[in-house]
Each structure stands twice: as C-alpha cells, then as structure tokens.
C-alpha cells in the first residue's frame, strides 16, 4: 500500500512528460563577462548569448540553471542538467570525466593581477578559484595558493591584503582592472593554459554533444561567434 502511494505521488510529480525534451544548461552565474546573473535576476553574458544561439541552431529547447562551481561536474553526472557552459577550459584531466565539444573561445591567456606591478607572483600568496586550471597552475608554480569558492572572492582577497595577487582568466580580470581606477596592475607573466573553453557533457550523451559540436562549427564558419566574442571581450582578444 505504502509503495502504491509512493509510486502514485511520484507519477503525479512527473506527470506531463512532454514529447520534446528540454535541454538544461548549467552555468555558474558569477563570472562576468562569461556568465553572470544580471540585475533582473536572469543569466546573462557571453555564454548566455552563445548558448541561446547554439540551441537555436541545433533546434533544441534550452533552459538555464545556475549552480556553484564546486559541484558543477558532480551535478552534471547525476543528471541535474545536461550541459556545462560555464567558461570551463578544456583540459586532459577534465576530459577523463566529461565529453567536451570543440572550443567556442580560443585558448585564452591567464594573468596575474596585483596591487602593484612588481609583486612577486612566484613566491608570494596567490588567490585562485577552487577547482580551476588556474588554481592547479598556482599550486605547481611554487607560490602559496589560497582558494575561494567564487571568482569575486579571489579578487576581494587581493583588495583586502589576504593575497598578494589573483590568478584568473585575463578576460575576467580586464574589466575589473580597467574600472579599478588604478588600484590594480598586471604582475608577472601571462600564461597560456588549456585548450580553450568548451561545453562539457556526460560521456554517454554523444548524440547531444555532436549536435552542439556541429552548431559551434556553424557559428565559427559564418563569423557570428567572432562577433559575439568581440562584443563581450573587446577587440583585443583572440578570435577564430
């Protein structure tokens, strides 16, 4: 009896299985200009526009979901959403657990930002976001790594003196540096990490991966991807 009630409740909860499947896109929503939650409370940014366009090209209905960066891969694997589109760099380590599409942002540079240009980024304290290619790089560089859950906190750590420098994607740091009124400066050398930013999917989702892959190829070919890159990151960054 109990099982019957439980099953009925579950069926009621899941009723209305639509024929067209909705694809749920998971993003972090805290990494402007890649993805962020705008003042209306909606996901916005470069990846929002790219993602919507790709769904249109692949004839899919898509919905946006935000999640914290820490749990972004486990949540994909347990099926809470179908695609990670969150400024995630393609690396060999991640490719072991995820299936990546081709990149939709060319391999970009990561940079150190500090309060003064002569900060020692190889020996001092450097902040980076947990579980990123940048935090792995800092850990290997000999500097003392302090990790934070959100990108914003990594910058705040430099501002309040907890860290000497922050190491992140340069495209994320550029607007912060430009609008800081001279508070921040670039330090150390710029570094190339990863194979560009791609969408991450479950390994078993090969069909969906191929659809997005083809859509990205279309956007690369007709130049619309370049237009969006220039719109959000400025005309000094690498394009296709």
């Amino acid at each position: 009896m109990k099982k019957l009630i439980l099953t009925t409740a579950l069926l009621a909860l899941t009723a209305g299985a639509a024929s067209a499947q909705t694809i749920r896109l998971g993003t972090e929503g805290a990494y402007p200009p890649y993805n962020f939650i705008n003042d209306a409370g909606e996901v916005d940014g470069f990846e929002r526009e790219v993602g919507d366009k790709l769904c249109e090209l692949a004839a899919l209905t898509c919905e946006w979901v935000t999640t914290d960066w820490d749990g972004i891969i486990p949540n994909l694997q347990s099926g809470n959403y179908d695609v990670i589109i969150a400024g995630m760099n393609i690396t060999a380590e991640r490719a072991e657990v995820l299936a990546f599409t081709q990149n939709y942002i060319p391999p970009a540079t990561s940079a150190y930002m500090a309060l003064s240009a002569d900060t020692d980024v190889m020996g001092g304290v450097v902040s980076a976001q947990t579980g990123t290619v940048q935090s792995a790089h800092v850990a290997a560089s000999g500097a003392t790594l302090v990790e934070f859950a959100t990108p914003d906190e990594t910058v705040a750590a430099v501002r309040n003196g907890e860290a000497d420098a922050v190491f992140a994607d340069k495209d994320y740091l550029v607007p912060i540096l430009e609008q800081s009124g001279g508070q921040f400066a670039w330090a150390g050398e710029e570094v190339q990490i990863g194979d560009g930013v791609g969408m991450g999917l479950r390994k078993s989702d090969t069909e969906l991966r191929d659809k997005f892959d083809a859509a990205i190829a279309t956007m690369k070919a007709d130049g619309s991807l370049n237009t969006l890159i220039v719109k959000w990151f400025g005309d000094k960054v690498a394009t296709y």
Binding site: T14, G16, A17, R24, T61, E63, V97, R202, K203
Partner: peptide
Amino acid sequence: RNGLEFRVCPQAKVPQNSS
C-alpha cells in the same frame, strides 16, 4: 550507472527536464 554518471531514461527524470 556508467562510471560516475547516473542516467535514467528521460521520462524518469524528477522533475521532468521540460517542467
């Protein structure tokens, strides 16, 4: 179960992807 992945049929998603 496929390694770390958990994948049920689309109709078994709670709640549905489309909801």
